[in-house]
Design a protein around this nucleic acid. Structure first.
Lengths: 164, 164
DNA sequence: CTATTTGCAAATTGTTTGCATTAAC
DNA sequence: GTTAATGCAAACAATTTGCAAATAG
C-alpha cells in the first residue's frame, strides 16, 4: 500500500486550496478528518477526532471551519434531529437519508424518480426548486411483515455508505 | 355572523378537554391562538399573540404548553430552518411545505404519490416507515422559465393555507 | 509584513427546569 | 383540599463572537 498518509493533502484539503483558503495546521487536520469520515459526524465528534491527530485545536475553530466549508459548498449540513448539526462532504447527485429510529444508524439511498417528482411538484406550484430536505425515520422490518407495497419495480437503492 | 368569540372554547381548547387536560386561563388563550393561526408560528410569535389577549402569561408557559400539546398529538412541531421550532395543528392526511427562499412564505401542498413512494423506498431498504420529513426550498418561477418537467399530469396541489 | 486565523472565555439564542405561589377540579 | 400549572429567574446546550496572540502567504 502506498498512501502518503501525512505528506499528501486530503481530498477536502485540496478543495480548500483550490478555493484559495489559507491552509493552517488545524484546517488541514479538520479537512483530513472530514475527508476520511464515512459517517455524518457532528461538531463535537469532529473536534474529538481532530484533537486526536493534533491536540492544539479548539471547538471554536471546528465550528468556524465547518461554517466556512459549508459556505464554500464543500460541506453540507444535515439535521437528523437531536439538536446538533451534522456534516458530510458534498457529493455528486442527490442522496437521501433513512434514520433507523431504534439504533440511530443512518442509511443513504438515491432515488431518481423521487428527485424528479419533487422538481415537478415545485414546478406545478409555480416555483423553481432550489433545494430540499428529506429524511425518512423508519424501523427495521420485522420478519413477519408482508409486502404491502405496489408491485412496481424499485428505483431506490442504497449507495453503500452506512452511517452511525 | 354568530360567533361567540369569547364564550366558546376554541377548537384546540376542546381537544384539550377531550384529553382531560386541566384548562387554565393561559392554556385556553394559547389554545385559541393556535386554533386561529393560519400559519406556522414559533414560540416567540405564539407568546406575542397570546400576550395580546391576556398579558399574564409567560414564555415558559408557552413552551410547556406546546410541548404538552405535541405529546398529546394535537400539535406538530416543524423545522423550516432558522433555528426555532414552529408549530401547526395536526391535520388529517399528510401535507408538505414549500418554503419560498426569497420571502420565507410557506406554501402547503399534498401529494399522494409522494407518500406512497416514500413508503415503498423504506420498504425496499428493509424498513417500515415510521415518519418522515420533507421540505422544499424554492423560488418563484421567473416568467421566462420554460416548462421542462415531464408532461405527466400532476398530483400536487395546494391545500389552500398559505403561510408567513 | 499584513491580513487571517486561532484560542479562550464571555456572550447569545432557543429551550428547559427548580421552586415557591396560584389556581383547577 | 390536593394535585397540577404558572411565573420567575437561573440553568442548559449548541453555537457564535471579541480580542489579543500566533501564523500563513
Amino acid at each position: 500500500m502506498a498512501a502518503g498518509n501525512d505528506v499528501m493533502e486530503s481530498r477536502i484539503g485540496r478543495m480548500c486550496i483550490e478555493r484559495g483558503l489559507k491552509m493552517t495546521g488545524q484546517r488541514r487536520v479538520i479537512a483530513r478528518v472530514l475527508s476520511e469520515a464515512q459517517d455524518h459526524p457532528d461538531v463535537e465528534e469532529l473536534y474529538r477526532r481532530a484533537a486526536t491527530l493534533d491536540s492544539r485545536i479548539s471547538v471554536a475553530t471546528v465550528y468556524r471551519t465547518v461554517r466556512l466549508l459549508e459556505e464554500k459548498g464543500i460541506l453540507e449540513r444535515r439535521d437528523f434531529g437531536g439538536g446538533r448539526a451534522r456534516y458530510e462532504a458534498t457529493e455528486e447527485g442527490d442522496h437521501y437519508h433513512l434514520i433507523d429510529v431504534d439504533t440511530g444508524k443512518v442509511i443513504e439511498f438515491e432515488d431518481e424518480e423521487h428527485a424528479r417528482l419533487l422538481r415537478r411538484i415545485a414546478n406545478d406550484l409555480g416555483f423553481d426548486l432550489v433545494s430540499h430536505r428529506l429524511e425518512l425515520f423508519a424501523r427495521k422490518r420485522t420478519a413477519d411483515t408482508k409486502d404491502e407495497s405496489p408491485p412496481r419495480t424499485t428505483t431506490a437503492r442504497p449507495t453503500g455508505r452506512s452511517k452511525r
